[in-house]
């Protein structure tokens, strides 16, 4: 039983996987063509780098959220956990003068710890994920303000920290090809996420819990343990997002982050992750995140009034989920 369920899952997964990739990727290509035709300023190296950079933080958050959503849960705290992680990185590096690698670990650790709390509250205290993570949304938001002393923490004494996200290793290898490291970090994180989701026990149980939690539990899996791990993993990605955003802005902004969880969830859902659990891919999520930032950037380049930009983003989100429903019906 335990071995069977995941096997069936991964077979159907493969099919939906290929289809969804095609759809979301098709939409992304269409957007690129439309924007390129409408403005000569869209398809330019600097602007494409801008889009990639704008995707990086949301993409990293969305990677973690993908795990939680596949497991049938939701995480509303990723945005503010990201902020708290950024602040803790700032506290370690700037306030306490500790080495940069320790600061990065502090960011990741803060994230993982928040996730551990989320997972424990959800799986042991039986509080619904929506409420548990909403609680964490407030807690981490408040703690970010407290630890930062209510003002941004700047990394001015450690100029090298900024290079973590904004330097360009690629640019050093290939002159002129200055793609910021933040983008590489996102792709690296995506590879790690894909590996965990597709090749490890944690990934297999993520799908199993999302498809049928009760059956998974009855087949002898320690659901509480794995669920906690999933939330910890999700928040660890949020922690990584925090380190990247801190490096990008050269500061930890304590008031930032509320609302970012929705962008991350949108990216995962546009990428074909099913909100009812059991389905989703990392590649889909990455494409979903790109779709959102390409849309935002393109509309800006076209000087579409801002209020309309928001409306269009909403329409695209609904359209994307509608595509997903169409696909389901046909199966």
């Amino acid at each position: 039983m335990q071995a069977q369920a995941p096997a069936v899952q991964s077979k159907s997964l493969f099919r939906s996987d290929a289809m969804q990739r095609l759809l979301a990727f098709g939409a992304l290509i269409v957007l690129f063509i439309v924007f390129s035709l409408l403005s000569p300023n869209f398809l330019q190296f600097d602007n494409i780098v801008g889009i990639l950079l704008a995707t990086s933080v949301n993409g990293i958050l969305a990677l973690g959220v993908t795990f939680v959503i596949i497991s049938g849960g939701i995480d509303l705290s990723v945005g503010t956990v990201m902020t708290l992680s950024a602040v803790m990185t700032g506290v370690f590096i700037t306030m306490w003068g500790l080495p940069i690698p320790l600061g990065i670990l502090a960011g990741l650790g803060t994230g993982a710890l928040c996730g551990l709390v989320n997972g424990t509250v959800i799986s042991r205290m039986k509080i619904p994920p929506f409420i548990a993570t909403l609680g964490m949304f407030y807690i981490s938001r408040g703690l970010a303000l407290i630890f930062s002393g209510l003002k941004p923490v700047y990394f001015n004494d450690t100029p090298i920290f900024r290079d973590l996200a904004m330097g360009s290793i690629l640019g050093a290898i290939i002159p002129g090809f200055d793609i910021p490291n933040a983008v590489l970090i996102m792709f690296g994180a995506a590879l790690v996420a894909a590996f965990i989701l597709n090749r490890t026990v944690l990934g297999r149980y993520t799908f199993a819990i999302g498809s049928n939690e009760e059956a998974t539990r009855l087949s002898g899996v320690n659901v509480a343990f794995w669920k906690t791990s999933i939330y910890a993993l999700c928040s660890a990605f949020a922690g990584l997002g925090g380190v990247v955003i801190a490096s990008r802005l050269n500061s930890a902004q304590p008031a930032l982050g509320a609302g970012y969880e929705l962008d991350a969830i949108a990216a995962a859902v546009i990428g074909g992750t099913s909100l009812s659990g059991g389905e989703g891919t990392i590649l889909g999520t990455v494409i979903g995140a790109f779709l959102i930032s390409t849309l935002t950037n393109g509309l800006r380049i076209l000087s579409v009034p801002q209020e309309w930009q928001i409306v269009v983003t909403g329409c695209i989100l609904i359209l994307a989920v509608f595509l997903d429903i169409l696909r389901r019906r046909q199966r």
């Binding site: 600097d46 801008g50 704008a54 802005l249 500061s251 930032l256 950037n297 800006r300 000087s303 801002q306």
Partner: peptide
């Protein structure tokens, strides 16, 4: 004329500035 939805969204404003320069 554009600006972020809330005054805490430093990164969103940076992206707007980026797009503006690209224009």
């Amino acid at each position: 004329f554009e600006g972020p939805e809330s005054e805490s969204q430093v990164d969103k404003q940076i992206e707007m500035l980026q797009a503006a320069i690209d224009k």
